[in-house]
Amino acid sequence: MIDTLIQGILLGGYYAVITCGLSFMFSVMRIINLAHGSLAVAAAYGLWLLASKFGISPFTGLLIVLPVMAATGWVLQRYLLERSARGGALLPILTTFGLAIVIDNLMFEQFGADTRSLAPFIGSLSYDSWELPGGTYVGKLAVMTMATAIALLGGLQVFLGRFALGRAIRATAEDPDTAGLVGIDARKANALAAAIAMVTVGIAGAFLGMRATFDPYSGGPQLLFAFEAAVIGGAGSLWGTLVGGIVLGLAQSLGAQVHPQGFLIGGHAVFLAVLFARLFFTGAPFIGKIGFYKTGFTKIRAAIRSTP
């Protein structure tokens, strides 16, 4: 039982890594990127290609893949998302969904249906573990993933709070027009945010490949997990992402103990339960903004709703 709980919590570390890019993009651009999971899988394929063809270790490979992901994010925002967001809130959903189909099938065309993994390229790290007092084992990779999640979230927090560029992104997230008045280029800030989000997606892809197997169509499930963790943890702070990831990881690990299909059912069920509870007891927003709650408009709307 203790073992299941520990594994569940550590699995949450991976979910936090894959979720932070999704909720970061949503909080800044108000866009949910439906190609999120597919892009993570694409990064995993990139690392796999470097490792299997050129013998580059996945960790070194990240030095190549992450800049490519950042550039992808920039281009994606400047040439696709920005344009489709001008046509209303619904179009980016369709654009990114179409993009996901293109990416998935291109990967299928290129790499075939075989499942791949980065585990063979990272030596003993994929199965090494530490023994805890009481005879439980924790995988070194899982601990590393959790540490990365914490470092990533902490790094984003510091970047958004302490750096001029980070503040520019926050200002754009809050109100792009007013940000423009004080000399912030909202388009640039958004593109930068997308680039940062894609870097985190690249890191998520690396851990996806190292801890498990993936195939060209793994992107859909990864998107769902990231979305679920974002909604569960959506208390309005970056750290909510970690909480959301851990709750999802726990629900899946416990579910798997109950039934062979319980892993997925447990995760989806806890997502719906949280959604249900939040909608009916607080009526609160689902994915909040970075580091601050939705204010103003939401409050006014709530006030209008409660007036008879």
Binding site: I32, L34, L90, P92, G220, L224, F227
Partner: peptide, 14 residues
């Protein structure tokens, strides 16, 4: 918006 879009996907997966 997007929350409804993917939320429905979760319903479908479940």
């Amino acid at each position: 918006g997007g929350e409804f879009a993917i939320g429905m996907w979760v319903i479908s997966a479940l």
